[in-house]
């Protein structure tokens, strides 16, 4: 008779405690703050769901959400195809494969606020190589005053920082394809496009979904890099959700509205991540059949 021992679940206990202290208790506190108002000194007044109503109808929140959705969509539309393209053209074997991998991985090793600082200096019109050169060429580029320039700089910065992740994941997916597939394609005289469409892309689907999920979550929660680069400006044109949330919670000390904002933000990310996760696990199961 087969016996089942459930004692292994005790091994999960340390993780549960850690998650309890670092995530569940703070989240409970945020829920508590979201239905109350405070003027400091740890004194709270019950307001019910007022902050949620206020945030849901707040133009400021709608604008920040709109900017966030545009930012995430744009960087994903650039990073995912670019990552696939680069990974397809990287050497598969030999010294150059290692050199390329190290070079590609470099941006991922740089801390986020350092990336912001690098681009902040790089784009400056007085001493920055990019800003100064563009202006010398007669292009009116100033990310401090011009909204378009600020957006372009932030998008290029994110592409520079994070395309590497997509490349590395796709590269790993490509390396895992057995040679037999390519040999069969060669016998069938398949074109380069068909090899990509019917062999490489389906085999990369799992890692591509992971890359998309990671890039979605990271970009939707982005804070440090745009904060260091533009501080949300000029005006509010690069104020994304996280930046707006920090302004509300720490700058204005509006803990109640900020807590309601955080919960709506959290639920949105949870929903989209769950959709990605469900698609991913279903693809895995279908492949496993």
């Amino acid at each position: 008779m087969k016996t089942v021992n459930q004692k292994a679940w005790f091994l999960v206990l340390p993780v549960l405690l850690l998650v309890g202290f670092s995530a569940v208790i703070p989240l409970m506190t945020v829920v508590n703050y979201s239905v109350q108002d405070t003027f400091g000194n740890n004194v709270f007044y019950w307001v019910g769901l007022e902050w949620f109503e206020e945030i849901l109808h707040s133009e400021r929140m709608h604008n920040a959400l709109g900017r966030q959705v545009i930012f995430t969509t744009v960087i994903m539309l650039i990073e995912i195809p670019l990552g696939i393209f680069i990974s397809l053209h990287m050497p598969k074997k030999g010294v150059w494969a290692s050199v390329c991998l190290v070079l590609i991985a470099l941006p991922l090793l740089i801390p986020w606020n350092v990336v912001g600082t690098i681009w902040q200096i790089f784009g400056r019109i007085d001493i920055g190589l990019l800003g100064h050169s563009l202006n010398a060429l007669g292009i009116d580029y100033n990310y401090v005053q011009n909204a378009t320039a600020a957006w372009i700089t932030i998008i290029i910065m994110d592409v520079w920082h994070w395309t590497s992740l997509v490349v590395l994941l796709c590269y790993a997916g490509l390396q895992a394809i057995p040679d037999a597939y390519y040999q069969a394609a060669k016998i069938d005289q398949a074109s380069r496009w068909n090899v990509f469409r019917y062999i490489e892309l389906p085999k990369m689907m799992g890692v591509l979904l992971i890359a998309s999920l990671l890039r979605f979550m990271d970009s939707f929660m982005i804070y440090t890099e745009p904060f260091v680069l533009t501080g949300g400006g000029p005006g509010n044109v690069t104020t994304f959700l996280s930046i707006d949330l920090v302004k509300m919670a720490i700058g204005q000390f509006d803990l109640g509205p900020a807590a309601a904002f955080s919960l709506i933000y959290f639920l949105t990310i949870l929903l989209i991540s769950w959709v990605f996760y469900t698609i991913m696990t279903n693809i895995d199961k279908r492949e496993g059949m």
């Binding site: 208790i25 409970m28 506190t29 829920v31 508590n32 703050y33 239905v35 740890n42 709270f44």
Partner: peptide
């Protein structure tokens, strides 16, 4: 636990 600002409705929700 006063820093957690507990209320009965939110406690009920978590329960």
């Amino acid at each position: 636990l006063s820093w957690m600002a507990w209320t009965w409705p939110t406690a009920g929700f978590f329960i």
